[in-house]
Design a protein around this nucleic acid. Structure first.
Length: 638
RNA sequence: GCCCACGUAGCUCAGUCGGUAGAGCGCUUCCUUGGUAAGGAAGAGGUCCACCGGUUCAAUUCCGGUCGUGGGCUCCA
């Protein structure tokens, strides 16, 4: 007799060892159809695996996140089989799941997406046949023999410990796999191949070039459709497209990876920085500026020459070596070291919006997201060890305030000491504990990445979440135990002795260029009123009203509102359409009625039109929205 | 840096199985002076299709290389 405890504490008894499916069926047939696997004590098993002892189990249904991952892994196997059916010489390597689906790295002739229809057709055949996934276990020797024609599998097996090795068989196709899998291929309801790219075996450039085929799969065709719709949305929001359409920035072959900002892009830029300065000044920061190009001796001292040289732009001037800064910190160290400091000055919050250049590999460049020249909204904070917690907490609060102004959510990740690191155990403990207590008193949950810190100190990364729920790492707070040492930075303590200050680097926007790119996608180019490069466009309904429109524009500019007159000889409809496409938040139509009555007719970005507003009411609402940096488009809908 | 794809008018793209290029938008001019998402007409605009070579009677089209862009890999103090 086997007793199975279900999550609701109820107990089911079975004469013979039951499989997960037996248990599910004992609840109901309908429920059983939605089950894909089960879990005992954190281990996940195939639905068909029998349970030989009393256990507490949880059945995993298609509603559970983990069920989708199991199914996608099965889909990877199905795709591998399909590819092998078509490409007889294909040699399989690994096929894991990733965030949005799965991929399989296969050693085969290069394929392009043109091959997808054929592979997908083969996949559908396999799915339709509802081929069961059967698990069986073999010894290492048997496994080696079984895969004797699969060099990559052999390599993987040879690295496994001797003992039982699990294989999964689906019809005539067997793959080395830990599992678990869905009961049969029919569980994969909707599958689509997404893209193909090159990848190296074991991510090693010196090893074989493989074809990585990406796919995604869902339990439901509707979900696949929604996912494709999401991708389409993301594509429409692409900041490169919107940036070109709104005339914000461009790239040129003469400076790959280095953006050129147009007047409207520059307006956005300045507004971001203006806001940054406002918040930072309030938070007790001062601002500095250090040179872009510095002598190599500085980089030698900072360690960059040794560790980062291949990413630095260098030059020789008067027979002396110079490098363009890839980071602001060494310059900041020189500034600190320029004079002596007392503990009474601490914490010293020294900001710098610094232009840095990094020679990133050509293949990684990507719009504003990955560039070779960018501005960091850097700051170095110098303090005593017992100030770590308070300062980190201060940065977290500043970060929260700034991100929330843009309607961006975020989550935190703490990275701790890596294997290769400098500094004593005690230093690391003080530093890490300081970060942890700051995180704890901040009170938000955070992810811990063990051993993922920089070699010079632990760090907190801040990942923002945009309107499409995509996450981006922007902010970071890094404790640095290396540079103060290398630059022999000191302060005089209460005891009148010299001490080593604790120093952190921190950024909020991260790269201003990248942050701007994220904002463009987040807002789909429809910036809140305070941030819009052009806030108001005036549309005279005929040419005679242009002088009056110009007059109104001037008075709006006097009130600090960025305005333009569209004086083209075009129909009103046309000008409205263009203004809407240009995502200008407020359209003022200027006709005889408005001129005579001295009122405004206002159209907001959501298409709502209001007639006969008094100038005073209009300015009042506009100013409230700008000054409070409100996020909603309809400024009259409070 | 590596793999794959791409690079045609300011923009979006079509086209030529090798015989010296097209549409829409935008721009200019003219007509229209229009009340909330495209009024009408005419015209200009490409060293001929990123750049450099090669094959060919002939290349934008085929081949090689370079540069750039996109996706992925890798890298990321």
């Amino acid at each position: 007799m086997i007793n199975i405890t279900l999550p609701d504490e109820s107990i089911k008894s079975f004469e013979d060892p039951p499989s997960g499916l037996d248990i599910a069926k004992s609840i109901s047939e309908g429920f059983a159809r939605n089950c894909v696997a089960y879990e005992i004590g954190g281990e996940v098993y195939d639905l068909n695996t029998k349970i030989n002892n009393n256990a507490a189990i949880r059945l995993i249904t298609t509603r559970d996140e983990e069920a989708r991952d199991i199914m996608r892994h099965s889909a990877a196997h199905v795709m591998a089989e399909a590819v092998c059916r078509i490409y007889k010489d294909a040699k399989l390597t690994i096929g894991p799941i990733v965030e949005d689906g799965f991929y399989y790295d296969i050693d085969m002739e290069p394929v392009s997406e043109d091959a997808f229809p054929e592979i997908e057709a083969e996949i559908k055949k396999i799915i339709k046949a509802k081929i069961p996934f059967e698990r069986f276990e073999v010894s290492k020797a048997e496994a080696l023999d079984f895969f004797k024609d699969e060099p990559y599998k052999l390599e993987m097996i040879s690295e496994l410990e001797d003992g039982n090795i699990s294989l999964y068989k689906q019809g005539g196709f067997t793959d080395l796999c830990r599992g678990p899998h869905v009961p049969h291929s029919g569980y994969i309801k909707a599958v689509k191949l997404m893209k193909v790219s090159g990848a190296y075996w074991r991510a090693d450039q010196t090893k074989e070039q493989l074809q990585r085929i990406y796919g995604t799969a869902f339990f439901d065709k509707k979900e696949l459709k929604e996912y494709l719709h999401f991708l389409e949305e993301a594509r429409k929001r692409n900041h490169r497209k919107i940036g070109a359409a709104l005339d914000l920035f461009s790239f040129h072959d003469e400076a790959a990876g280095m953006p050129f900002f147009h007047p409207k892009g520059m307006a956005l830029w300045n507004l971001l920085i203006e806001y940054w300065r406002y918040e930072h000044k309030k938070a007790g920061y001062v601002e500095t500026k250090t040179p872009v190009m510095l002598n190599w001796k500085l980089w030698e001292k900072s360690g960059h020459w040794e560790n980062y040289r291949e990413n630095m732009y260098t030059s020789v001037i008067d027979d002396d070596g110079y490098a363009i800064k890839p980071m602001n910190c060494p310059g900041g160290m020189l500034l600190y070291g320029e004079k002596s400091h007392s503990y009474k000055e601490f914490p010293m919050r020294v900001g710098e919006i610094g232009l840095v250049h990094r020679h990133e590999l050509s293949g990684v460049l990507s719009g504003l997201f990955r560039v070779r020249a960018f501005h960091q909204d850097d700051a170095h904070i110098f303090m005593m060890p017992d100030q770590i917690e308070g300062e980190i907490l201060g940065v977290l609060k500043l970060v929260e305030r700034i991100y929330s102004t843009f309607g961006l959510g975020f989550h935190l990740e703490l990275s701790t000491r890596p294997e290769k690191s400098i500094g004593s155990d005690e230093q690391w403990e003080t530093a890490t504990n300081g970060l942890i207590s700051a995180l704890d008193s901040y009170g938000m949950d955070y992810v811990i990445n063990e051993g993922d810190g920089a070699f010079y100190g632990p760090k907190i990364d801040i990942h923002i979440k945009d309107a499409l729920k995509r996450t981006w790492q922007c902010g970071t707070i890094q404790l640095d135990m290396s540079l103060p040492e290398r630059f022999d930075l000191t302060y005089v303590g209460k005891d009148n002795e010299k001490h080593r200050p604790v120093m952190i680097h921190r950024v909020v926007y991260g790269s201003i260029e990248r942050f701007l790119g994220i904002l463009i996608e987040h807002f789909e180019g429809k910036f809140p009123l305070w941030l819009s490069p052009v806030q108001v466009v005036l549309l005279p309904i005929n040419d005679e009203l242009i002088p009056y429109a110009d007059e109104v524009r001037e008075s709006l500019e006097d009130s600090g509102i960025r305005s333009e007159v569209d004086g083209r000889t075009e129909s009103l409809k046309k000008k409205v359409r263009d203004a809407q496409l240009n995502r200008i938040p407020l359209i003022l139509t200027i006709g005889e009625k408005e001129k005579t009555a001295g009122t405004f007719s206002v159209r907001t970005l959501d298409g709502k039109v209001r007639f006969g507003l008094s100038k005073e009411d209009f300015l009042k609402q506009v100013n409230i929205h700008i000054n409070e940096r409100k996020l909603n488009w309809d400024i009259f809908d409070d």
